[in-house]
Design a protein around this nucleic acid. Structure first.
Lengths: 204, 204
DNA sequence: GCTCGTCTGGGACGCTTGACCCACATCGCC
DNA sequence: GGCGATGTGGGTCAAGCGTCCCAGACGAGC
C-alpha cells in the first residue's frame, strides 16, 4: 500500500462505503467491509476518519453533491410537448433505478439512518433541499411557465419520483410503473401555462 | 410472569418490536430490546419465535393487515368536490404521520430491510399490493368514475403519498407539504369524469 | 543524511449481538 | 393426584462489531 494523504483516503473510503451500501445494504457497511472494498488495512479507517458515523456523513454529502446532479443532468431533454418531455425524463430516471436498484435503495437507507442518528439528523433536510433545487432546474428546462409556483411543482415531482421508486423497488412491476409515469406526466403537464388555458380552478 | 401460550407471546413480541422500531429505529430492535419492551425474559424470544428475522416478518404482516387499514379507514370522507375530498384525506393522512413520525419511518425501514434480507424479500410486494388495494378503495369512496383505470390512479396516489411522507420526514416543512397536497389533489381530481368534460388528451 | 512529522498495518480490547441450553415451574388430562 | 406436555428464565456461547494502540516504514525539510 503506497502512501496516500489522509484526506484522499477519506474520500476513497466514502466511495467504497457507498459501493458497499449499494451492494449489500447499510447494515453490512461495517468498518471492515468498507476498508476491504477500498483495499486498505483496518487501521487506516480511524486514521482517516474519526468515526463510522462521520464517514456516513461524508457519504451523504458525496451523494448530494456529485451523484445526484451527475446522474440527472442528461434527463433534461426537451422533446415535443411538455408532457412527452416529462414522460421521457421520468422514464429515463426509472431506467437509471432499474440499472442499479441498490444505489437508489442506498439513498433511502442513508436518509432513514441519518434521521435516526443524533449527529446526522440535519442531513436529510439538506439532501431534499438539493433534490428540490434539482427538480426546479428540470421543470425550468422542460418548458413552462407554470400556472403554479415552480417550487411547489418541484416538490410534487420529487415526491412522486420517490414514491415511484419505492413502489418499483417493492414489486418490480415495470408495466405499472410505466403507466404511473404516464399519469403523473399528464398531471404535471396540466400545470403548464398553455395546457388548459382557462377553467379548471387551481388555487394553490 | 404468568403462563402465556407461545402464539400469544409471538403476537405480543411483534407488537413490542413495532413499538421499539417506531421509537428507536430498526437497528435498535435487538432481541433484548424487544423482550424488554414486552416485559419478558430473553429466552421467551426464541421459544416463541425461531429467529429475529421471523419476527420481523410477523411485524410487517401485522402492519400490513391491521395498522394500515385501521389508520386509513377514517380518511374516507366524501366532502364537497372530489378535489376537496382528496385534500381532506391527504391532509388527515399527513396529520397521522406528524402525530407519530416514528411509526411511518418504521414502515420505510422495514420495507428496505425486507428487500435486503433473503427470507423476507417477498414481503414488500405484498405490502405495496395492500397499499394499492387500499388506495383503490379510497378512490372509489371519493367519487369517480375515473377517466383512467382506478388501479393506475391508485398507484399514483400511493407513490405520491409515500414521497410526500419521505420529504416531510426529511425537512418537516408543514407549509410546503400542505401546498404539495393541494397540487396533488388538483392533479388527481383532474382525472375524474366530470372535471374536464372533453379536451386534455389522456392516453394512459 | 539525519530527523521529525506523517502514514501504515497487524494485533488486540471491550462490548453487544443472536442464539441456545437446561434445570425448574406450571398446567391439562387421564 | 400423579404425569407428560408445555412454558419459564437465568446463565452462557461464539461471532462480529467499532475503536484503539504502537512499533515500524516512509518522505520532506534543515
Amino acid at each position: 500500500m503506497s502512501r496516500i494523504p489522509a484526506t484522499e483516503r477519506r474520500t476513497a473510503l466514502a466511495h467504497a462505503a457507498l459501493a458497499v451500501i449499494a451492494r449489500d445494504g447499510l447494515a453490512a457497511a461495517t468498518t471492515r467491509a468498507i476498508v476491504a472494498e477500498a483495499g486498505m488495512p483496518l487501521a487506516s479507517f480511524h486514521y482517516a476518519v474519526p468515526s463510522r458515523d462521520e464517514l456516513l456523513r461524508d457519504v451523504v454529502e458525496l451523494v448530494v453533491a456529485e451523484e445526484g446532479s451527475a446522474a440527472l443532468a442528461p434527463l433534461m431533454t426537451r422533446a415535443g410537448s411538455i408532457r412527452d418531455a416529462t414522460v421521457l425524463a421520468m422514464t429515463a430516471y426509472l431506467e437509471l433505478v432499474k440499472r442499479d436498484p441498490g444505489h437508489e435503495q442506498a439513498m433511502f437507507e442513508l436518509t432513514q439512518y441519518a434521521l435516526r442518528t443524533p449527529g446526522l439528523d440535519d442531513l436529510p433536510a439538506e439532501q431534499y433541499a438539493r433534490y428540490h433545487a434539482l427538480a426546479i432546474e428540470l421543470l425550468d428546462a422542460a418548458g413552462g411557465p407554470w400556472r403554479v409556483p415552480t417550487a411547489d411543482l418541484a416538490r410534487m415531482l420529487v415526491s412522486f419520483t420517490d414514491g415511484l421508486t419505492l413502489a418499483w423497488l417493492a414489486d418490480r412491476d415495470d408495466a405499472a410503473a410505466a403507466r404511473t409515469i404516464e399519469l403523473a406526466a399528464t398531471a404535471i403537464a396540466s400545470f403548464a401555462e398553455q395546457a388548459v388555458p382557462s377553467e379548471q380552478k387551481v388555487d394553490a
